[in-house]
């Protein structure tokens, strides 16, 4: 079994307070992993550390076969990271944003790549619109398109469907399913249980610790709904902490 992400004891401390506390994360290649947990549980922090955006205070392991601490440059060029908050340049047009992204990943056929991505995302007619003037859902689509444009092997998606309408959400999940089926890996954080059910595996994190991990049926075992199980795990972790 080969892992796209295999990291142990990952820790982030802020002022002596561990907001991510010695967690182990293993993500199999070609699978979609759902990353769930209440607000402030450390999902964003974990993803940032995995792709070298934040330093980690402890932990060792590999991401796409590279040491996640020392070879973050190599990891970055093969990862598509979609930030929770829209982080493209609002005073650039959609086309300019995509072109810039392609150039930074040093990919060839810039024009062709951009044109294909625009077509696929249904953004062609809006290509010359300033990114800042897009509606919330369209911004998310632009961000997803941009993080796929350099053909990454691993997607780290931080709440990619927040504010996206149902139809687009469905299309989005079909897209990432196709992506996983062609052998690539996805770690996606979400607060929607229906989206969690579409994942191959779920990692549940609360208060910086992983509380549960497994397939949907394993997680739901003994609970009537996924919400109930999450509430149980969250309360349980709080009890452990106290």
């Amino acid at each position: 079994m080969s892992y796209a992400i295999d990291v142990r004891n990952l820790t982030k401390k802020i002022k002596n307070n561990a907001i991510v506390d010695h967690i182990n994360i293993r993500v199999q290649r070609g699978k979609i992993y759902g990353f769930l947990g209440p607000n402030g549980s450390g999902k964003t922090t974990t993803m940032r550390m995995l792709c070298g955006l934040l330093s980690s205070d402890d932990g060792e392991g590999h991401c796409l076969g590279f040491d996640f601490k020392k070879e973050s440059d190599k990891i970055k060029s093969q990862v598509g990271y979609m930030t929770q908050k829209f982080s493209f340049w609002e005073d650039l047009t959609i086309r300019e944003n995509l072109e810039f992204t392609v150039k930074m990943f040093q990919k060839d056929n810039i024009e062709k790549r951009v044109r294909k991505s625009l077509e696929k995302a249904g953004l062609t007619s809006r290509a010359e619109q300033l990114a800042g003037t897009l509606s919330g859902g369209w911004k998310q689509r632009l961000a997803l398109t941009a993080c796929l444009i350099h053909e990454p092997k691993l997607l780290l998606l931080d709440e990619p469907t927040a504010g996206v309408d149902p139809k687009a959400r469905k299309a989005f999940w079909e897209d990432i399913r196709n992506f996983a089926d062609s052998g690539f890996t996805v770690l996606v954080s979400t607060h929607y249980t229906d989206e969690a059910e579409r994942c191959d595996k779920i990692i549940y994190i609360a208060y910086g610790s992983i509380m549960a991990e497994g397939t949907v049926s394993e997680i739901m075992c003994g609970f009537s709904s996924m919400e109930d199980s999450f509430i149980y795990y969250t309360d349980n972790s709080l009890r452990n902490k106290l």
Binding site: L53, V79, T83, K85, S87, W89, M104, F105
Partner: peptide, 14 residues
């Protein structure tokens, strides 16, 4: 402030 730095840092750029 606008968060675009996060995007920039996620790219393989020195």
């Amino acid at each position: 402030e606008r968060g675009t730095m996060e995007n920039m840092l996620a790219m393989p750029v020195k």
